[in-house]
Write a protein that binds this DNA or RNA. Sequence first.
DNA 1: TTTTGAGTTGTTCGA
DNA 2: GTCGAACAACTCAAA
Length: 485
Amino acid sequence: MPDTAAPTLLWFRRDLRLHDNPALTAAAARGGPVIAMFILDDADAGDRRPGGASRWWLHHSLARLGETLARIGTRLVLRRGRAEYVLSRLVEETGAAAVCWNRRYEPWATARDGRIKDGLRKRGLEVQSFNASLLYEPWEVTSKQGTPLKVFSPFWRAVQAKGDPADPLPVPTRLPAPDTAPDSDSLDDWALLPTAPDWAGGLRETWTPGEAGALARLDRFLDEAVGGYKAKRDIPGTAATSALSPHLHFGEISPRFIWHAARAASEARSNEPMDRGTASFLSEICWREFSHNLLFHNPDLPELSLRRAFEDFPWREDIEGLRAWQRGLTGYPIVDAGMRELWQTGWMHNRVRMIAASFLIKDLLVHWRHGAAWFWDTLVDADLASNSASWQWVAGCGADAAPYFRIFNPVLQGEKFDGDATYVRRWVPEIAALPDSVIHKPWMAKPLALAEAGIALGRTYPYPIVDHATARNRALEALKSIKKG
DNA sequence: TTTTGAGTTGTTCGA
DNA sequence: GTCGAACAACTCAAA
Protein backbone atom coordinates (compact mmCIF):
# COMPACT_ATOMS: atom_id res chain seq x y z
CA MET A 1 0.00 0.00 0.00
CA PRO A 2 1.44 3.37 -0.94
CA ASP A 3 1.64 5.93 1.78
CA THR A 4 -1.15 8.15 0.56
CA ALA A 5 -0.25 10.95 2.92
CA ALA A 6 3.19 11.38 1.35
CA PRO A 7 3.24 13.44 -1.82
CA THR A 8 4.23 12.24 -5.28
CA LEU A 9 6.62 14.25 -7.42
CA LEU A 10 5.42 14.52 -11.00
CA TRP A 11 8.42 15.52 -13.10
CA PHE A 12 7.41 17.20 -16.37
CA ARG A 13 10.01 17.06 -19.14
CA ARG A 14 9.11 16.86 -22.83
CA ASP A 15 5.52 15.98 -22.05
CA LEU A 16 4.02 19.40 -21.42
CA ARG A 17 0.39 18.33 -21.56
CA LEU A 18 -2.42 16.83 -19.50
CA HIS A 19 -4.00 14.49 -22.06
CA ASP A 20 -2.54 11.04 -22.64
CA ASN A 21 0.08 11.59 -19.98
CA PRO A 22 0.85 8.27 -18.26
CA ALA A 23 3.05 9.77 -15.55
CA LEU A 24 0.36 12.25 -14.67
CA THR A 25 -2.27 9.51 -14.60
CA ALA A 26 -0.06 7.33 -12.42
CA ALA A 27 0.68 10.18 -10.01
CA ALA A 28 -3.00 11.01 -9.71
CA ALA A 29 -3.85 7.34 -9.13
CA ARG A 30 -1.65 7.19 -6.05
CA GLY A 31 -4.28 9.16 -4.23
CA GLY A 32 -2.00 11.50 -2.28
CA PRO A 33 -1.01 15.06 -3.06
CA VAL A 34 0.91 15.63 -6.28
CA ILE A 35 3.72 18.13 -6.74
CA ALA A 36 4.07 18.96 -10.41
CA MET A 37 7.49 20.28 -11.32
CA PHE A 38 9.78 21.19 -14.18
CA ILE A 39 13.56 21.41 -14.00
CA LEU A 40 15.62 23.65 -16.27
CA ASP A 41 18.76 21.56 -16.45
CA ASP A 42 21.28 23.20 -18.72
CA ALA A 43 24.19 21.33 -17.22
CA ASP A 44 23.19 17.83 -18.18
CA ALA A 45 22.13 18.71 -21.67
CA GLY A 46 25.65 20.01 -22.24
CA ASP A 47 26.03 21.45 -25.69
CA ARG A 48 22.60 20.12 -26.51
CA ARG A 49 20.94 22.84 -24.53
CA PRO A 50 17.91 24.14 -26.37
CA GLY A 51 18.59 26.78 -29.01
CA GLY A 52 17.12 30.25 -28.98
CA ALA A 53 13.89 29.37 -30.77
CA SER A 54 13.33 26.32 -28.58
CA ARG A 55 13.82 28.36 -25.44
CA TRP A 56 11.24 30.85 -26.61
CA TRP A 57 8.81 28.00 -27.15
CA LEU A 58 9.63 26.38 -23.84
CA HIS A 59 8.84 29.58 -21.95
CA HIS A 60 5.36 29.83 -23.42
CA SER A 61 4.65 26.14 -23.17
CA LEU A 62 5.52 26.14 -19.48
CA ALA A 63 3.33 29.17 -18.89
CA ARG A 64 0.37 27.40 -20.51
CA LEU A 65 1.06 24.18 -18.62
CA GLY A 66 1.10 26.11 -15.34
CA GLU A 67 -2.31 27.56 -16.16
CA THR A 68 -3.92 24.24 -17.04
CA LEU A 69 -2.47 22.56 -13.96
CA ALA A 70 -3.89 25.33 -11.81
CA ARG A 71 -7.30 24.59 -13.28
CA ILE A 72 -7.21 21.04 -11.96
CA GLY A 73 -6.00 22.02 -8.55
CA THR A 74 -2.23 22.18 -8.42
CA ARG A 75 0.59 24.45 -9.50
CA LEU A 76 3.74 23.94 -11.47
CA VAL A 77 6.93 24.22 -9.45
CA LEU A 78 9.88 25.53 -11.45
CA ARG A 79 13.43 24.79 -10.39
CA ARG A 80 16.77 25.26 -12.07
CA GLY A 81 19.91 23.16 -11.74
CA ARG A 82 21.22 19.65 -12.16
CA ALA A 83 18.23 17.35 -12.15
CA GLU A 84 19.83 14.98 -9.60
CA TYR A 85 20.34 17.74 -7.06
CA VAL A 86 17.02 19.45 -7.63
CA LEU A 87 15.10 16.22 -7.23
CA SER A 88 17.05 15.24 -4.17
CA ARG A 89 16.37 18.59 -2.61
CA LEU A 90 12.66 18.45 -3.38
CA VAL A 91 12.38 14.99 -1.88
CA GLU A 92 13.89 16.36 1.33
CA GLU A 93 11.69 19.43 1.34
CA THR A 94 8.44 17.63 0.71
CA GLY A 95 8.92 14.14 2.12
CA ALA A 96 7.84 12.71 -1.22
CA ALA A 97 7.52 8.94 -1.37
CA ALA A 98 7.39 8.53 -5.13
CA VAL A 99 8.50 10.16 -8.36
CA CYS A 100 6.79 9.73 -11.73
CA TRP A 101 8.00 10.87 -15.13
CA ASN A 102 7.72 10.13 -18.81
CA ARG A 103 10.81 8.89 -20.58
CA ARG A 104 13.16 10.76 -22.82
CA TYR A 105 15.25 8.76 -25.24
CA GLU A 106 18.25 10.93 -26.06
CA PRO A 107 21.51 9.21 -25.08
CA TRP A 108 22.45 11.83 -22.47
CA ALA A 109 18.95 11.66 -20.99
CA THR A 110 18.74 7.89 -20.72
CA ALA A 111 22.11 7.80 -18.97
CA ARG A 112 21.15 10.55 -16.55
CA ASP A 113 17.68 9.22 -15.84
CA GLY A 114 19.07 5.78 -15.09
CA ARG A 115 21.38 7.27 -12.46
CA ILE A 116 18.56 9.29 -10.99
CA LYS A 117 16.26 6.30 -10.83
CA ASP A 118 18.86 4.19 -9.03
CA GLY A 119 19.62 6.96 -6.57
CA LEU A 120 16.00 7.57 -5.67
CA ARG A 121 15.25 3.89 -5.25
CA LYS A 122 18.24 3.45 -2.97
CA ARG A 123 16.67 6.10 -0.78
CA GLY A 124 13.49 4.06 -0.65
CA LEU A 125 11.41 6.05 -3.09
CA GLU A 126 9.14 4.48 -5.61
CA VAL A 127 10.01 5.53 -9.16
CA GLN A 128 7.82 5.00 -12.18
CA SER A 129 8.63 5.99 -15.74
CA PHE A 130 6.47 5.73 -18.85
CA ASN A 131 6.42 6.18 -22.58
CA ALA A 132 4.55 9.31 -23.53
CA SER A 133 6.36 10.55 -26.62
CA LEU A 134 6.45 7.58 -28.98
CA LEU A 135 3.88 5.21 -30.44
CA TYR A 136 6.02 2.33 -29.24
CA GLU A 137 9.18 2.00 -27.22
CA PRO A 138 12.35 2.06 -29.34
CA TRP A 139 13.00 -1.59 -28.51
CA GLU A 140 9.49 -2.73 -29.40
CA VAL A 141 9.63 -2.24 -33.17
CA THR A 142 12.14 -4.71 -34.58
CA SER A 143 12.91 -7.01 -37.47
CA LYS A 144 11.71 -10.58 -37.27
CA GLN A 145 15.08 -11.41 -35.76
CA GLY A 146 14.43 -8.91 -33.03
CA THR A 147 17.12 -6.47 -34.18
CA PRO A 148 16.60 -2.72 -34.65
CA LEU A 149 15.47 -1.71 -38.13
CA LYS A 150 17.64 0.56 -40.23
CA VAL A 151 15.41 1.04 -43.25
CA PHE A 152 12.22 3.02 -43.10
CA SER A 153 9.92 0.84 -45.22
CA PRO A 154 10.28 -2.30 -43.11
CA PHE A 155 9.98 -0.09 -40.02
CA TRP A 156 6.71 1.38 -41.25
CA ARG A 157 5.41 -2.09 -42.12
CA ALA A 158 6.39 -3.35 -38.67
CA VAL A 159 4.56 -0.48 -36.98
CA GLN A 160 1.42 -1.10 -39.00
CA ALA A 161 1.62 -4.81 -38.25
CA LYS A 162 1.39 -4.03 -34.56
CA GLY A 163 -2.09 -2.65 -35.05
CA ASP A 164 -3.10 0.52 -33.25
CA PRO A 165 -0.97 1.90 -30.43
CA ALA A 166 -2.48 2.17 -26.96
CA ASP A 167 -5.56 4.32 -26.55
CA PRO A 168 -4.80 7.81 -25.23
CA LEU A 169 -5.43 8.43 -21.55
CA PRO A 170 -8.03 10.97 -20.42
CA VAL A 171 -7.23 14.23 -18.65
CA PRO A 172 -7.61 13.83 -14.88
CA THR A 173 -10.30 16.05 -13.45
CA ARG A 174 -8.41 16.84 -10.30
CA LEU A 175 -4.84 16.73 -9.07
CA PRO A 176 -4.70 17.25 -5.30
CA ALA A 177 -2.06 19.75 -4.22
CA PRO A 178 -0.02 19.45 -1.03
CA ASP A 179 -0.95 21.68 1.92
CA THR A 180 2.15 23.77 1.45
CA ALA A 181 3.56 24.09 -2.03
CA PRO A 182 7.33 24.14 -2.45
CA ASP A 183 8.93 27.38 -3.62
CA SER A 184 9.09 27.94 -7.32
CA ASP A 185 11.36 30.01 -9.51
CA SER A 186 9.71 32.69 -11.54
CA LEU A 187 9.51 31.74 -15.20
CA ASP A 188 10.56 35.22 -16.22
CA ASP A 189 13.75 34.91 -14.19
CA TRP A 190 14.81 32.02 -16.40
CA ALA A 191 15.20 34.53 -19.22
CA LEU A 192 14.20 32.09 -21.92
CA LEU A 193 12.78 34.88 -24.04
CA PRO A 194 14.99 37.07 -26.20
CA THR A 195 15.21 40.66 -25.05
CA ALA A 196 17.88 42.68 -26.76
CA PRO A 197 17.05 42.36 -29.53
CA ASP A 198 13.62 40.79 -29.38
CA TRP A 199 13.70 38.69 -32.51
CA ALA A 200 10.63 36.65 -31.61
CA GLY A 201 7.99 38.74 -33.38
CA GLY A 202 7.65 36.30 -36.25
CA LEU A 203 7.38 33.40 -33.82
CA ARG A 204 4.60 35.10 -31.90
CA GLU A 205 2.67 35.71 -35.11
CA THR A 206 3.08 32.14 -36.28
CA TRP A 207 2.63 29.91 -33.27
CA THR A 208 0.47 29.15 -30.27
CA PRO A 209 2.66 27.06 -27.98
CA GLY A 210 0.94 24.87 -25.46
CA GLU A 211 -1.44 21.94 -25.34
CA ALA A 212 -4.52 23.91 -26.37
CA GLY A 213 -2.70 25.32 -29.39
CA ALA A 214 -1.50 21.85 -30.32
CA LEU A 215 -4.95 20.28 -30.14
CA ALA A 216 -6.48 23.16 -32.09
CA ARG A 217 -3.87 22.76 -34.80
CA LEU A 218 -4.52 19.04 -35.07
CA ASP A 219 -8.27 19.70 -35.31
CA ARG A 220 -7.82 22.21 -38.06
CA PHE A 221 -5.44 19.94 -39.96
CA LEU A 222 -7.81 16.97 -39.75
CA ASP A 223 -10.76 19.13 -40.78
CA GLU A 224 -9.16 21.00 -43.62
CA ALA A 225 -5.95 19.49 -44.92
CA VAL A 226 -5.29 15.82 -44.22
CA GLY A 227 -7.50 14.69 -47.11
CA GLY A 228 -5.23 16.43 -49.58
CA TYR A 229 -2.05 15.78 -47.65
CA LYS A 230 -0.56 13.22 -50.00
CA ALA A 231 -1.01 15.44 -53.02
CA LYS A 232 -0.11 18.80 -51.50
CA ARG A 233 2.37 18.15 -48.72
CA ASP A 234 5.26 18.97 -51.04
CA ILE A 235 3.93 22.38 -52.06
CA PRO A 236 5.45 24.90 -49.65
CA GLY A 237 3.21 27.72 -50.86
CA THR A 238 0.15 25.98 -49.41
CA ALA A 239 -0.73 25.21 -45.80
CA ALA A 240 -1.00 21.50 -46.50
CA THR A 241 1.17 20.13 -43.72
CA SER A 242 0.18 19.78 -40.08
CA ALA A 243 2.98 21.95 -38.61
CA LEU A 244 2.64 19.86 -35.47
CA SER A 245 6.39 19.25 -35.17
CA PRO A 246 7.13 21.76 -32.37
CA HIS A 247 4.08 20.66 -30.42
CA LEU A 248 5.22 17.05 -30.77
CA HIS A 249 8.74 17.90 -29.74
CA PHE A 250 7.64 19.49 -26.49
CA GLY A 251 5.07 16.80 -25.88
CA GLU A 252 2.15 19.17 -26.00
CA ILE A 253 0.41 16.54 -28.04
CA SER A 254 0.82 12.79 -28.00
CA PRO A 255 1.60 10.78 -31.14
CA ARG A 256 -0.83 8.13 -29.93
CA PHE A 257 -3.53 10.79 -29.68
CA ILE A 258 -2.69 11.96 -33.20
CA TRP A 259 -2.78 8.40 -34.52
CA HIS A 260 -6.22 7.66 -33.14
CA ALA A 261 -7.66 11.06 -34.01
CA ALA A 262 -6.40 10.79 -37.60
CA ARG A 263 -7.85 7.33 -38.07
CA ALA A 264 -11.19 8.36 -36.59
CA ALA A 265 -11.33 11.42 -38.85
CA SER A 266 -10.51 9.28 -41.87
CA GLU A 267 -13.22 6.84 -40.99
CA ALA A 268 -15.74 9.65 -40.57
CA ARG A 269 -14.83 10.95 -44.02
CA SER A 270 -14.42 7.86 -46.09
CA ASN A 271 -15.56 4.85 -44.10
CA GLU A 272 -12.03 3.55 -44.06
CA PRO A 273 -9.58 4.09 -41.22
CA MET A 274 -6.65 4.97 -43.50
CA ASP A 275 -7.49 6.96 -46.60
CA ARG A 276 -4.51 8.01 -48.71
CA GLY A 277 -4.00 11.32 -46.98
CA THR A 278 -4.17 9.77 -43.54
CA ALA A 279 -1.80 6.92 -44.41
CA SER A 280 0.67 9.42 -45.81
CA PHE A 281 0.40 11.65 -42.74
CA LEU A 282 0.78 8.77 -40.29
CA SER A 283 3.81 7.49 -42.17
CA GLU A 284 5.38 10.91 -41.56
CA ILE A 285 4.53 10.58 -37.88
CA CYS A 286 6.36 7.29 -38.16
CA TRP A 287 9.43 8.97 -39.63
CA ARG A 288 9.68 10.83 -36.37
CA GLU A 289 9.37 7.51 -34.59
CA PHE A 290 12.02 5.99 -36.85
CA SER A 291 14.44 8.82 -36.12
CA HIS A 292 14.01 8.34 -32.39
CA ASN A 293 14.68 4.66 -32.89
CA LEU A 294 17.86 5.39 -34.82
CA LEU A 295 19.15 7.75 -32.15
CA PHE A 296 18.30 5.35 -29.36
CA HIS A 297 20.25 2.54 -30.99
CA ASN A 298 23.01 4.81 -32.37
CA PRO A 299 23.98 7.29 -29.64
CA ASP A 300 26.63 8.82 -31.96
CA LEU A 301 24.03 9.89 -34.48
CA PRO A 302 24.30 13.65 -33.72
CA GLU A 303 28.08 13.68 -34.11
CA LEU A 304 29.19 10.90 -36.42
CA SER A 305 28.06 9.93 -39.89
CA LEU A 306 26.36 6.58 -39.59
CA ARG A 307 28.26 5.52 -42.67
CA ARG A 308 31.65 6.12 -41.20
CA ALA A 309 33.28 6.54 -44.61
CA PHE A 310 31.70 9.99 -44.71
CA GLU A 311 33.95 11.06 -41.87
CA ASP A 312 36.70 11.11 -44.50
CA PHE A 313 34.65 13.13 -46.95
CA PRO A 314 36.53 16.21 -48.23
CA TRP A 315 34.24 18.74 -46.58
CA ARG A 316 35.02 22.39 -47.23
CA GLU A 317 35.49 25.03 -44.57
CA ASP A 318 33.40 27.62 -46.34
CA ILE A 319 32.61 30.23 -43.72
CA GLU A 320 31.31 32.73 -46.24
CA GLY A 321 29.13 30.19 -47.95
CA LEU A 322 27.73 29.00 -44.65
CA ARG A 323 27.00 32.58 -43.68
CA ALA A 324 25.23 33.31 -46.96
CA TRP A 325 23.18 30.16 -46.56
CA GLN A 326 22.20 31.04 -43.00
CA ARG A 327 21.07 34.49 -44.03
CA GLY A 328 19.15 33.44 -47.11
CA LEU A 329 21.53 35.15 -49.52
CA THR A 330 22.71 32.29 -51.74
CA GLY A 331 21.18 33.69 -54.91
CA TYR A 332 18.96 30.63 -55.30
CA PRO A 333 15.47 31.89 -54.46
CA ILE A 334 13.96 28.64 -53.18
CA VAL A 335 16.91 28.11 -50.83
CA ASP A 336 16.83 31.70 -49.64
CA ALA A 337 13.07 31.61 -49.14
CA GLY A 338 13.41 28.58 -46.91
CA MET A 339 16.23 30.03 -44.84
CA ARG A 340 14.29 33.24 -44.32
CA GLU A 341 11.13 31.39 -43.38
CA LEU A 342 13.25 29.58 -40.81
CA TRP A 343 14.74 32.77 -39.45
CA GLN A 344 11.42 34.55 -39.17
CA THR A 345 9.10 31.78 -38.02
CA GLY A 346 11.38 29.17 -36.46
CA TRP A 347 10.12 26.60 -38.93
CA MET A 348 10.64 25.56 -42.53
CA HIS A 349 8.49 23.50 -44.86
CA ASN A 350 9.75 19.94 -45.17
CA ARG A 351 10.33 20.02 -48.92
CA VAL A 352 12.34 23.20 -48.59
CA ARG A 353 14.35 21.77 -45.69
CA MET A 354 15.56 19.09 -48.08
CA ILE A 355 16.39 21.57 -50.80
CA ALA A 356 18.21 23.92 -48.44
CA ALA A 357 20.08 21.08 -46.75
CA SER A 358 21.06 19.55 -50.06
CA PHE A 359 22.41 22.93 -51.16
CA LEU A 360 24.61 23.34 -48.09
CA ILE A 361 25.92 19.79 -48.24
CA LYS A 362 26.15 19.03 -51.95
CA ASP A 363 26.60 22.45 -53.53
CA LEU A 364 28.77 24.04 -50.86
CA LEU A 365 30.29 20.80 -49.48
CA VAL A 366 29.84 22.09 -45.96
CA HIS A 367 29.64 19.37 -43.31
CA TRP A 368 26.07 18.40 -42.41
CA ARG A 369 26.90 19.05 -38.75
CA HIS A 370 27.11 22.79 -39.46
CA GLY A 371 23.66 22.69 -40.99
CA ALA A 372 22.31 20.64 -38.12
CA ALA A 373 23.77 23.13 -35.63
CA TRP A 374 22.09 26.09 -37.35
CA PHE A 375 18.76 24.28 -37.44
CA TRP A 376 19.21 23.35 -33.79
CA ASP A 377 19.44 26.98 -32.83
CA THR A 378 16.76 28.38 -35.10
CA LEU A 379 14.02 25.74 -35.29
CA VAL A 380 11.17 25.76 -32.81
CA ASP A 381 10.86 22.04 -33.48
CA ALA A 382 14.58 21.33 -33.04
CA ASP A 383 14.72 17.70 -32.02
CA LEU A 384 17.95 15.80 -31.55
CA ALA A 385 16.63 12.63 -33.16
CA SER A 386 14.76 14.12 -36.12
CA ASN A 387 17.37 16.77 -36.80
CA SER A 388 20.35 14.43 -36.73
CA ALA A 389 18.68 11.66 -38.70
CA SER A 390 17.31 14.01 -41.32
CA TRP A 391 20.58 15.82 -41.95
CA GLN A 392 22.34 12.50 -42.30
CA TRP A 393 19.67 11.31 -44.67
CA VAL A 394 20.15 14.29 -46.98
CA ALA A 395 23.93 13.93 -46.77
CA GLY A 396 23.64 10.32 -47.86
CA CYS A 397 25.45 9.04 -44.80
CA GLY A 398 22.34 8.02 -42.89
CA ALA A 399 20.88 4.62 -42.22
CA ASP A 400 18.54 4.82 -45.14
CA ALA A 401 20.83 6.75 -47.37
CA ALA A 402 19.79 8.46 -50.54
CA PRO A 403 21.76 7.37 -53.61
CA TYR A 404 24.88 9.46 -54.03
CA PHE A 405 23.72 10.89 -57.34
CA ARG A 406 20.56 12.35 -55.84
CA ILE A 407 21.57 15.99 -55.80
CA PHE A 408 18.76 18.51 -55.80
CA ASN A 409 18.81 21.15 -58.48
CA PRO A 410 17.49 24.23 -56.64
CA VAL A 411 16.05 25.74 -59.81
CA LEU A 412 14.20 22.61 -60.89
CA GLN A 413 12.96 22.00 -57.36
CA GLY A 414 11.64 25.54 -57.17
CA GLU A 415 9.90 25.27 -60.52
CA LYS A 416 8.47 21.87 -59.74
CA PHE A 417 7.15 22.51 -56.23
CA ASP A 418 6.67 26.27 -56.24
CA GLY A 419 5.66 26.75 -59.86
CA ASP A 420 3.53 29.81 -59.20
CA ALA A 421 6.24 31.13 -56.85
CA THR A 422 3.78 31.78 -54.03
CA TYR A 423 6.39 30.68 -51.54
CA VAL A 424 9.37 32.48 -53.01
CA ARG A 425 7.44 35.74 -53.40
CA ARG A 426 6.34 35.55 -49.77
CA TRP A 427 9.84 35.14 -48.37
CA VAL A 428 12.03 36.85 -50.96
CA PRO A 429 9.97 39.95 -51.67
CA GLU A 430 12.77 41.82 -53.41
CA ILE A 431 12.36 39.59 -56.47
CA ALA A 432 8.58 39.22 -56.27
CA ALA A 433 7.94 41.27 -59.40
CA LEU A 434 9.80 38.83 -61.65
CA PRO A 435 7.55 36.64 -63.81
CA ASP A 436 7.06 32.98 -62.91
CA SER A 437 9.23 31.93 -65.85
CA VAL A 438 12.46 33.31 -64.34
CA ILE A 439 11.75 33.94 -60.69
CA HIS A 440 13.54 30.74 -59.66
CA LYS A 441 16.61 31.78 -61.71
CA PRO A 442 16.85 35.58 -61.65
CA TRP A 443 20.28 35.58 -63.30
CA MET A 444 18.61 34.22 -66.43
CA ALA A 445 16.19 37.12 -66.61
CA LYS A 446 16.68 39.63 -69.40
CA PRO A 447 18.10 42.98 -68.28
CA LEU A 448 14.84 44.68 -69.15
CA ALA A 449 12.83 42.21 -67.03
CA LEU A 450 15.18 42.78 -64.12
CA ALA A 451 14.92 46.54 -64.49
CA GLU A 452 11.14 46.38 -64.65
CA ALA A 453 11.12 44.27 -61.50
CA GLY A 454 13.35 46.79 -59.76
CA ILE A 455 16.20 44.32 -59.33
CA ALA A 456 19.90 45.07 -59.57
CA LEU A 457 21.59 41.69 -59.31
CA GLY A 458 24.55 41.75 -56.99
CA ARG A 459 23.02 44.70 -55.18
CA THR A 460 19.35 44.14 -54.34
CA TYR A 461 19.61 40.36 -54.65
CA PRO A 462 22.78 38.25 -54.94
CA TYR A 463 24.11 36.41 -57.92
CA PRO A 464 24.27 32.66 -57.22
CA ILE A 465 27.19 32.05 -54.87
CA VAL A 466 28.02 28.87 -56.79
CA ASP A 467 27.08 27.61 -60.22
CA HIS A 468 24.93 24.57 -59.58
CA ALA A 469 26.12 22.50 -62.54
CA THR A 470 29.74 23.06 -61.53
CA ALA A 471 29.00 22.41 -57.88
CA ARG A 472 27.16 19.22 -58.74
CA ASN A 473 30.14 17.82 -60.62
CA ARG A 474 32.42 18.82 -57.77
CA ALA A 475 30.16 16.94 -55.33
CA LEU A 476 30.12 13.83 -57.51
CA GLU A 477 33.92 13.91 -57.66
CA ALA A 478 34.15 14.34 -53.91
CA LEU A 479 31.80 11.42 -53.40
CA LYS A 480 33.97 9.24 -55.61
CA SER A 481 36.86 9.83 -53.27
CA ILE A 482 35.20 7.96 -50.43
CA LYS A 483 33.64 5.18 -52.49
CA LYS A 484 36.30 2.67 -51.65
CA GLY A 485 36.60 3.95 -48.11
C1' DT B 1 24.58 -19.47 -44.27
C1' DT B 2 23.38 -17.88 -48.52
C1' DT B 3 20.57 -15.72 -51.63
C1' DT B 4 17.46 -12.40 -53.28
C1' DG B 5 15.04 -8.26 -53.84
C1' DA B 6 14.68 -3.77 -52.41
C1' DG B 7 15.87 0.83 -50.71
C1' DT B 8 10.87 8.56 -49.24
C1' DT B 9 11.38 12.76 -51.63
C1' DG B 10 16.45 13.22 -58.27
C1' DT B 11 18.81 14.83 -62.55
C1' DT B 12 20.69 14.57 -66.93
C1' DC B 13 21.39 12.94 -71.39
C1' DG B 14 20.28 11.26 -75.64
C1' DA B 15 16.97 9.29 -78.67
C1' DG C 1 8.64 18.32 -75.56
C1' DT C 2 8.73 13.64 -73.85
C1' DC C 3 10.53 9.42 -72.27
C1' DG C 4 13.52 5.83 -70.73
C1' DA C 5 17.95 4.75 -69.27
C1' DA C 6 21.93 5.63 -66.70
C1' DC C 7 23.96 7.35 -62.82
C1' DA C 8 27.20 2.33 -58.23
C1' DA C 9 27.75 0.07 -54.92
C1' DC C 10 26.31 -1.36 -50.64
C1' DT C 11 23.51 -2.67 -46.88
C1' DC C 12 19.50 -4.35 -45.08
C1' DA C 13 15.68 -7.66 -44.13
C1' DA C 14 13.54 -11.67 -45.05
C1' DA C 15 13.21 -16.04 -47.11
